[in-house]
Design a protein around this nucleic acid. Sequence first.
DNA 1: TTGCTTTTCAAACATTTGTATGAAACTATC
DNA 2: GATAGTTTCATACAAATGTTTGAAAAGCAA
Lengths: 229, 229
Amino acid sequence: MASDQTRSAILAAAERLYADRGFGDVTLRDIVAEANVNLAAVNYHFGSKDELIAELFVTRSIQTNRERLNELKAAEEAGGGRAAIDDIMRALVGPTLRGCLGPDREGSTAARFMIRASIESVPPIRRIKNREVDHLRKFAAAMRRAMPGRDDTELYWGLHFALAMAHHTIREKERLLRLSEGKCDLDDVRAIIDRVVTVSVMALTMGDAPNKPAARPVLVHGRLTRQDL
Amino acid sequence: MASDQTRSAILAAAERLYADRGFGDVTLRDIVAEANVNLAAVNYHFGSKDELIAELFVTRSIQTNRERLNELKAAEEAGGGRAAIDDIMRALVGPTLRGCLGPDREGSTAARFMIRASIESVPPIRRIKNREVDHLRKFAAAMRRAMPGRDDTELYWGLHFALAMAHHTIREKERLLRLSEGKCDLDDVRAIIDRVVTVSVMALTMGDAPNKPAARPVLVHGRLTRQDL
DNA sequence: TTGCTTTTCAAACATTTGTATGAAACTATC
DNA sequence: GATAGTTTCATACAAATGTTTGAAAAGCAA
């Protein structure tokens, strides 16, 4: 068997099992059984279990980050070099939410894996997440351009809250579903993105004088450039 | 040694170690060494490792939940049976944020333990968290009374987002600190609570007509009843 | 083929970990 | 102070798990 086939069989099996059962109770033996390869293959191809997990997570993270930056770039080009704040926020939370929610995504192993990674947080993944700050700085910079003069602190809090709502919705979607007795529609991803973006922009315009109601954004659907979805 | 002393020595040592190093790499042997008790004592007093963790988490959760409900009750009494929406949200996120953030809390083992529990999420803790829905329903009910006529869905989303911002701030406070290069003051807990409450209430009044700017809340400090802090 | 590298494989290794055991020490009640 | 119940202790157990090893197999170039 060509060496790459073993490698990707392991990756696929690992992602599937981690997605289904979590990092906690999936062993290397489970993975190699699922992939139909020898136990030693994991250490041969990846060095260690942690490096396997890291590679899985890095791959998916890069995908998400690229989608984000593509959307951001598209928004900036559409706005003549300066993107509107709501488009920036949309680029920030859209890819993750679209990737992890939605009815047809039920079968997506990659999405379920990222949800797991968001819920369980094992050491190799935590290490990678810590390097994510550089990526977020690009969004902070775009936000600064979109809202010049605004205090940096407010920008960071807005960014932080946007990620909070997006990630928490992914993490706790079961609980929200149960709490609301199914009333909150977690399959309507577009509506959820709109909601998160709206609240984020509200948070960002928080300090505005209350007699400027126009600052409260009214968003419309379908603003995304679909170039890479 | 009286049996209770061993029991609480284990609890204290376990909470300290879990808080400092996480659930992942703290073994029973670490705990009993820290507590200066015999290895078998854990199983004798708690039955199993998981039950020890569960007891730790349940204890702290009950404390937080009680604080929340006390604040809610105080707000309802102050409002003549119907609490204002911002006071309800404050009661929801205040205790957790006050417990886990702030400069003097740096040394609080209980707080650091709860942060760990929020980040790592091991099976026994997950099981307990799943039962938390009943507790949240009480807040949903209070919110319904405070905003009659509003669609239930909106209430749940607002509640959900409030918890999102609070928990994410606790989970990712290091990252926010690093992203903002220290500009976001995570020691000013009161300001953070105000910020979360403000945005939450904004989210809840989202559907309001934009020509009612008064619906945007302007909050003041120091509204808490301190009866049980 | 020959010789070399890469990949696979079964088996063993070395720890680590939670848990169980049975005797000893202790405590309280009569 | 004898007895019964409780708690402590050293030690052993059993199972799981990531990793390593050394040889066999496969791939490949000359």
